[in-house]
Simulated scan of single mutants.
Amino acid sequence: MDTDPTVDSPVDAVDAVDVTKRYGDLVAVDHLSMRVAQGEIYGILGPNGAGKTTFLRMLFGLIRPDSGSIRLFGRTWAEAGVDVLDGVAGFVESPRFYPYLTGLQNLEALALLDGDDQRARIAEVLDIVDLTGRERDRVAGYSYGMRQRLGVAASLLREPRLLVLDEPANGLDPGGIRDMRALVKRLAGSGLTVLLSSHHMDEVEEICDNVTIMKRGAVAFHGTLTDLRAMAPDPGHRLGTTDDAHARRIAREAYPGVVVEPDPDGGLVATGSPARLSAYVADLVRAGIGLREFTPTETPLEALFFMLTDAGTTAERDVA
């Protein structure tokens, strides 16, 4: 195996094998294995406390695993020391900057501190993250989303082949999430490998090639988004009617594939395939029952995510 990251080779960008990290009695990461191929967008998903950030800290060498190994482009920390991070950039948790300096001044300082003068790339990376025109504003006046994008710009100064982003959309409003998703897509389109973490399925389902879902430090799912969608349950909808008792009776008598139960918050929740739900709702209208609400409770992937990360639920699958 060629382990020189400067040589074009088939080695994985990330190859983690049986990685474990404990803090006393707490197992933060429990025998985690993961492979991220070059050129893909890979998502690590899980609720807060699942072990995502702990794994990323180990990847960057900020902490060391108690057992197992992590290879970046074929090299380990034991073999290459800090050189293992050649071609790797990103941030763990939220990026930090000097708030009294401008975005441009922060990037200039980072370009010098990195050892190589990358100032010639500053205009390019500012354009990539859509901060051109705001670079001379103080970071103290930046929105949270702008600081996240400045963090991506700082990472891109190193011309990485692997970009690691820890919850890049956390704390953003819907517009900021949309912009961050579009940015990640553009970066991946340029051939960059992106490894990102999130605790929201909807932030990654449109952009990731493969995902690992974590639950209390362990793997709950490995696989592609296609695999995940195939496992997803039928969608649920909140259903408000003028006669809930009659609506439930129609479901019981004529639609065995549709489950209609009372919603604790009021009204009903109807679960079933889209085709069966459409036919059922049409029958309600024909029966003279008025519809006041018919809205999704959550996407099928969100429902599956909650199932996989709830206590007692596991559906492990190896990455192909």
Score class of each variant (00 low, 15 high):
Arg161Cys: 08
Asp83Phe: 01
Ala140Thr: 14
Leu157Gln: 06
Thr313Tyr: 12
Leu85Gly: 03
Arg75Tyr: 06
Ala247Val: 01
Ala182Leu: 09
Asp130Val: 12
Pro235Tyr: 08
Gly90Thr: 09
Leu45Thr: 09
Leu304Arg: 00
Met214Trp: 04
Val7Tyr: 07
Gly312Asp: 09
Leu32Ile: 12
Thr271Glu: 07
Gln118Trp: 14
Met307Trp: 11
Gly175Met: 00
Ala220Tyr: 08
Val211Gln: 01
Leu291Gly: 13
Leu165Ser: 05
Pro5Ile: 10
Met307Phe: 11
Gly266Thr: 07
Tyr255His: 03
Trp77Ala: 15
Trp77Met: 13
Val211Ile: 15
Leu196Gly: 00
Phe55Trp: 08
Lys185Ala: 15
Gly103Lys: 12
Ala16Pro: 13
Glu206Asn: 14
Asp66Lys: 12
Val14Tyr: 02
Asp283Lys: 06
Ala13Val: 08
Ala320Glu: 14
Leu101Tyr: 10
Pro235Met: 00
Leu196Thr: 03
Thr224Gln: 03
Pro99Val: 14
Ala188Arg: 15
Asp66Ile: 09
Met146Ala: 13
Gln148Cys: 12
Thr241Val: 10
Ala13Pro: 12
Gln118Ala: 15
Gly61Tyr: 03
Thr299Asp: 04
Pro160Glu: 01
Val139His: 11
Leu126Pro: 00
Leu72Asn: 06
Gly257Arg: 04
Ala16Asn: 07
Ala50Gly: 02
Asp173Leu: 01
Gly288Val: 03
Gly223Tyr: 01
Arg158Asp: 05
Leu26Asn: 11
Leu59Met: 14
Thr295Pro: 00
Thr224Gly: 08
Val139Trp: 03
Arg252Leu: 11
Gly171Ile: 10
Pro168Phe: 06
Glu79Thr: 08
Gly267Tyr: 07
Val36Gln: 04
Arg158Lys: 15
Gly151Val: 02
Ala275Glu: 12
Asp173Ser: 02
Asp2Leu: 14
Thr226Pro: 13
Leu183Arg: 01
Pro95Cys: 09
Asn106His: 12
Arg186Ala: 09
Pro235Asn: 01
Arg238His: 12
Val258Asp: 09
Val211Asn: 03
Pro174Gln: 03
Arg134Ala: 15
Gly141Val: 06
Gly288Tyr: 11
Pro256Lys: 07
Arg138Ser: 14
Leu301Tyr: 08
Ala245Leu: 11
Arg138Tyr: 09
Arg96Gln: 15
Ile44Tyr: 00
Ile63Glu: 13
Asp243Val: 04
Pro233Met: 01
Arg71Tyr: 09
Asp263Ile: 10
Gly133Pro: 11
Asp234Cys: 05
Ala109Glu: 14
Asp283Thr: 02
Asn210Ala: 14
Val139Ala: 10
Asp283Val: 00
His199Glu: 01
Ala78Asn: 12
Gly217Ala: 05
Phe306Thr: 11
Glu40Pro: 08
Thr224Phe: 01
